[in-house]
């Protein structure tokens, strides 16, 4: 077989496979876009920071800033704040009903620093989510379950008066994650 003929034969065999891989990737990236809109939303990203300071950002904050009162992750690295000023001094089990009052949910704390989303690109957040070293040692299915069932995550869609909720719902995000996984969990730019 001439070299040209071999290339033609090979192309004929692999083209449909390539088309379907390409289509799955495109579908997967479209699911990721939905997921990324949630993860990068201020209700989620404000407490997924790489430094010590939770953020106040979102529609009614007039620009992104640090959380007031010198609130920090905590010298013990726990994410629950510092002695004398733990998150739970102000953040209780439920939202304050007052505008600008403290939001609340069970177990209020900062995500570990390696789970940083705030100000990160979609590609970086995607890579982080897929890396067990940086996603709490979870499989992707476990990440999806966490999004569906964790009460603190659920707060993102029920953030109290005056705060814009994350887009969609926990259940919709869970389903988008499952579809993304079924399409091979592609990340943008990879």
């Amino acid at each position: 077989m001439s070299r040209l003929a071999m290339i033609v034969v090979l192309a004929a065999i692999s083209a449909p496979a390539l088309v379907s891989i390409g289509a799955a990737r495109a579908d997967g990236l479209s699911e990721w876009a939905t997921i990324h809109k949630v993860f990068s939303h201020p209700r989620c990203a404000n407490c997924h920071v790489e430094d010590e300071r939770p953020r106040w950002s979102g529609d009614h904050y007039g620009g992104a800033g640090m959380h007031g009162f010198n609130i920090k992750r905590g010298t013990d690295g726990s994410g629950f704040g510092n002695p004398g000023q733990r998150c739970a001094v102000c953040h209780f089990e439920a939202n304050s009903g007052k505008p600008h009052g403290p939001p609340g949910a069970e177990n209020w704390h900062l995500a570990p620093a390696e789970m940083a989303w705030f100000g990160q690109s979609s590609a970086l957040i995607c890579a982080q989510i897929k890396d067990p070293e940086r996603n709490g040692d979870r499989t992707l299915e476990e990440v999806a379950d966490h999004v569906r069932s964790d009460p603190l995550v659920a707060w993102g869609w029920n953030p109290g008066p005056g705060r814009q909720p994350a887009p969609g719902s926990a259940e919709e995000t869970y389903r988008a994650l499952l579809r993304w996984i079924s399409f091979g969990a592609p990340c943008p730019g990879t």
Binding site: F69, N70, T75, N82, P83, G84, Q85, V89, C90
Partner: peptide
């Protein structure tokens, strides 16, 4: 109750609210 000899930084971290 948590810190026996708080530094200036410990005090800032605890009292800024």
């Amino acid at each position: 109750e948590e810190v026996d000899e708080p530094s200036d930084a410990d005090i800032d971290d605890a009292m800024s609210g």
